[in-house]
C-alpha cells in the first residue's frame, strides 16, 4: 500500500473523528509554542507589532496639518479639522487605524507571514533560524505572497462584510445569527487559505498553485485546520466585542480607553496570528508534501 493511500485514509479517519482532529490541532499548538524556545521564530510578528505601535504613536502625535489630511483619507465624511479636536481625535482612532492597517495587512504583512513560515520550518527541521534570511526569502516570494494575501483578505473581508451588511437592519438573535454566520464564513475561508503561504515558502509554489494545493490540503484536513484557525481566533473575540462598544465605554470612562483598547487588540492579534501561522506550518510540515520540480527552496540551507 502506497504512503499516499495510507495518508489519505489517515485524513479520512481524522475527518470522521472530532476528538482526533481536536487532539491533532492542539498538538500543533503545543509544537508552535515549543518552537518559541528559539525566540527568533516570533521575531517577525514582534517587529510588525512594533510597527503597529509606531503607527499608533504617529496617529496620536500628528493630528493636524498634512498628517491629519492623510489620516482623514481612509474614512469618508471626516474632515482633517475634526482630528484636531478632543475627543473626536481619539474616537476616530479605531476606524482610521483599522482601515490603514487593513491596507498594510494586504501589502506588508504578507512578508511577515512568509518570514514566520520560513523560521518555523527552519526550527522544525532543527536548522539555524536567521531573521535576515527569512525576510530575504519572503522578499523574493513577495509577488506570490501578495497575490495570496490580496485574494484571501478580499474573500475573508467580503464574507464578514456581507454578514455585517445583512444584519444591519436586524435586531436581537437574528442579527447575532447573521453576524455570526458572516464571521464563521470568514473563518472557513481563512482555513482554506491557511496552507497557501507554507506552499509558497516551503515548496516554492506559485500563488495560484499554492492556493489550489492549500485549499486541497485544507479540505482533506478540514476539521483540524478549522480548529487551528478558530481556536486562536477565539482569543481575539473578547477584544472584538470590546471594540464594538469601545466608543461608548470611552465616552463614559475616558477617551484614552481607545488607545488602551487598540494596544490590547494588537497584542491579542499578535498571539493569535503567530499561533495560526506556526500551527498551520507545523501541520504542513508534518505531512509528506511533494515538492514540484524546479521550485526547490532550500530551507535546510544556512
Amino acid at each position: 500500500m502506497s504512503k499516499a493511500v495510507i495518508k489519505g485514509s489517515a485524513d479520512a479517519a481524522e475527518r470522521r473523528s472530532l476528538a482526533r482532529s481536536i487532539s491533532s490541532a492542539f498538538r500543533a499548538f503545543h509544537a508552535s509554542l515549543t518552537l518559541l524556545i528559539d525566540p527568533r521564530v516570533a521575531a517577525p510578528y514582534l517587529i510588525y507589532f512594533v510597527f503597529q505601535m509606531l503607527l499608533l504613536a504617529t496617529y496620536l502625535a500628528g493630528n493636524s496639518g498634512p498628517l491629519a489630511r492623510l489620516w482623514a483619507l481612509p474614512v469618508g465624511g471626516v474632515s482633517p479639522e475634526t482630528l484636531g479636536h478632543y475627543p473626536a481625535h481619539l474616537l476616530l482612532l479605531q476606524p482610521i487605524l483599522g482601515r490603514v492597517e487593513m491596507i498594510l495587512e494586504i501589502f506588508l504583512r504578507s512578508v511577515f507571514h512568509g518570514a514566520t513560515v520560513y523560521l518555523v520550518a527552519r526550527a522544525m527541521r532543527h536548522g539555524k533560524p536567521s531573521l535576515p534570511r527569512a525576510f530575504s526569502a519572503a522578499g523574493r516570494r513577495y509577488p506570490h505572497l501578495l497575490g495570496i494575501s490580496v485574494i484571501s483578505s478580499a474573500t475573508v473581508y467580503a464574507a464578514v462584510y456581507i454578514g455585517v451588511w445583512l444584519s444591519s437592519d436586524m435586531e436581537g438573535p437574528a442579527m447575532y445569527a447573521v453576524l455570526g454566520g458572516g464571521i464563521a464564513a470568514g473563518l472557513i475561508i481563512q482555513s482554506l487559505f491557511v496552507y497557501a503561504i507554507p506552499y509558497v515558502m516551503i515548496n516554492g509554489s506559485s500563488a495560484p498553485a499554492a492556493m489550489a494545493s492549500g485549499i486541497s490540503l485544507s479540505l482533506r484536513t478540514f476539521t483540524k485546520t478549522l480548529f487551528v484557525v478558530a481556536v486562536p481566533f477565539m482569543l481575539t473575540v473578547p477584544m472584538i466585542l470590546l471594540d464594538m462598544k469601545a466608543e461608548m465605554i470611552a465616552l463614559q470612562l475616558s477617551p484614552d480607553f481607545m488607545i488602551h483598547n487598540h494596544v490590547a487588540s494588537r497584542v491579542m492579534e499578535l498571539v493569535s496570528t503567530y499561533l495560526i501561522t506556526a500551527s498551520a506550518t507545523v501541520i504542513f510540515l508534518a505531512r509528506k508534501v511533494d515538492r514540484p520540480a524546479g521550485t526547490s527552496l532550500d530551507i535546510g540551507a544556512g
Binding site: 528559539d38 525566540p39 527568533r40 516570533a42 521575531a43 514582534l46 517587529i47 507589532f49 512594533v50 505601535m53 509606531l54 499608533l56 504613536a57 496620536l60 533560524p129 531573521l131 484614552d256 488607545i259 488602551h260 494596544v263 497584542v267
Partner: peptide
C-alpha cells in the same frame, strides 16, 4: 537569538508603553 528577540520584544513593550502612557 535571545538577544535579537529580547531587543525586538523590548522595543515592542517600550513602544506600547510610550503610546499608552498619557
Amino acid at each position: 537569538p535571545i538577544r535579537t528577540v529580547l531587543l525586538t520584544a523590548a522595543a515592542a513593550v517600550l513602544t506600547a508603553a510610550i503610546t499608552i502612557c498619557p
